[in-house]
Structures are given as C-alpha cells and as structure tokens.
Amino acid sequence: MDSKKQTARISRQTWHFAEDVRVQASAVSVGPKEGEGPLASYFDQIHDDVYVGQQTWEDAERKLMENAVTILLQKASIAEKDVDVILAGDLLNQNITTNFTAEKLAIPLMGMYGACSTSMLTLATAAALVNAGYAQKAIAACSSHNATAERQYRYPTEYGGQKPPSAQWTVTGAGAGLVGIGGEGPRITYATMGKVTDMGIKDPFDMGSAMAPAAVSTIHSHFQDTGRTPEDYDLIVTGDLAAVGYPIVKELMRAQGYAMEDMYNDCGLMIYYPEQEVFAGGSGCASSAVVTYSYIMDQLNRGLLKRVLVCATGALLSPISYQQGNSIPCIAHAVAFEGGI
C-alpha cells in the first residue's frame, strides 16, 4: 500500500482507492410516493407535492437536487466554497437539472450522463478525484422525477395508455454524497466501471431485461478483479432492475459460480411497497441514489452493514434511438463501500 500508483488501477475496469476516501455525509430529498415507501424514515426530506412548490415539473426536479445538496452541506457543516467540484447528472436533455443546480451552488461542475447509472458514475469519479488529490472535497449528486422522465422518454403523464407489468415507475427524488479524505463515514474502497452491453432488447417498457446483462458484466468483473465473492458482502444491490431484471441477474450470476442469494437486493424493489402500484418496481437515477445515500449509508454508519456493493444500472437509450428500431444499450457501474473501519 506504499505506492499509490501500484494500487490505484487493478484492471482496465476496477479502481482501488488506497487513500482513506470516505462518504463524509449524504442527503436525499424525495417526492410523496417515495415518502410512503418502506425507507421513508431514512429520508432527510419528503415533499408531499410532486411539484415541490414549483410551477413546472422540471423546476420541481431542480428543487429536489438543490435541496439534497443544501441539506448535505448543512449535515457536513461546510459551505459551498469548501467544495472543489460537484459531479452530477440527471435524465433530462443536456443534463439541464444539473446545470441549473450547479449555477445556483457556484461549485465547479463536471456534468455526467450515465442514465440511471449516474449515481455510481459520479460517486466513483468523485472518489478517484479525491484519491488522486485533484479535489479535497467533491460532491456526487443525481436526480430524477417521475413526470419529467415520462415526458422525456414516454407519453404525457395524463395520457391513458396502458403500460405492461414489466414497466417501471421513475423515482422522484435526488441524492447527494460528500466525498473527502478521512473523517467519519463509510469508506469507498473499490469502483468497477462498466462496459456498454446490449443483448438486443428493444422494448423501452422492459428495462429490467435490457439492463440485467450490464449488471452481470460489471459485478462479474468486480469479483474477478478484486478476488472477492458475494459472501464478502453483507449487501449487494443493483440500481433499478426491479422484478424482471433482478431474477435474471441472480440466475446468470449463479450460472457463473457466484451465488447471490440473501445478500442480493435491488433498489427498485426496496424503495416502494409492492402495493404502491409501481408495475415491476422503481427506476431512474434517483432509485439507486436515494437508497444508497439514505438507507445504505445509515446502515454502514451504524455498523449494521459492513461491506456493501452498489451496482447502478443505466439504460442508455434515447427516445429517437428506440423509435428508429435500435436496441437499448445498457451500462452498470459498481462502487464498494466499507463501514466501521
């Protein structure tokens, strides 16, 4: 561990953070439906209005991200000027939520897009910048909003078209984490960056099947590169595979000798009760971000979980690409956390 250069790069995909890189604080801000879900008690802020007191849904999403970052800064007792960089992304055209939020915060921005994998894409990159010394404190953040995502990818929200049971419900919320060296909070030890995987699924109402191979690819690489196995983790979560993608990942991993049974869950299944009428489960950048930056960080901080792997999954389609008959390219990025060290 004496030389950073020797340990930083494990493989083409996996990074090891030799420094004491930690998630020093985290915060989430969510909408009403999420506030009725099983994880409600872990959320910092729950809005009872999907408009979050704004005129448009786009403004509402912006407010969610702003609120998440503001609460984060309060929890960490630091000011905007103490943060060197914010790495953030969302699902809207040109990452517009992120751009407006960063303008308001006046923190240097690195906007990133990885669809729903943005949560771990930004966090892994933030950890790398901090580990390498380019930033002392970095914020990773992302957001999604059910109504803005519907407009971006699907139909008007009040349109009465029937959705199939494999469809998913985009999570309304934003999550943010503060990454720095030392102090308190779970350590970020490894990150495995994903390769784009496309197994020819074309149905945008079946993201679970589309994204499952990307998750398998990244988690498999993570185990290969680190020499770890599923048993090394107390909890392994995927971002938003929901009821369709989750069993596919289980089966494909089992077939490759990595049995992920009790320790494996999916954020899209954790964030809502099945009775909440969310089809197969939650999706969106906020699915993995909200669960990671609330429940998982809390459990790591309290020592109830020791090691957690979060593999955020993203469907990199555009509305035009699927209308033109293309299949859905998918990606997954994984970050390993360790608590109590």
């Binding site: 494999s166 679970g208 369709v244 596919i248």
Partner: peptide, 8 residues
Amino acid sequence: QASKYQPK
C-alpha cells in the same frame, strides 16, 4: 432466457 421472467 430473459423472457421466462417476463410477467404474464
């Protein structure tokens, strides 16, 4: 393989 998990 994936179609097995497709809700009917």
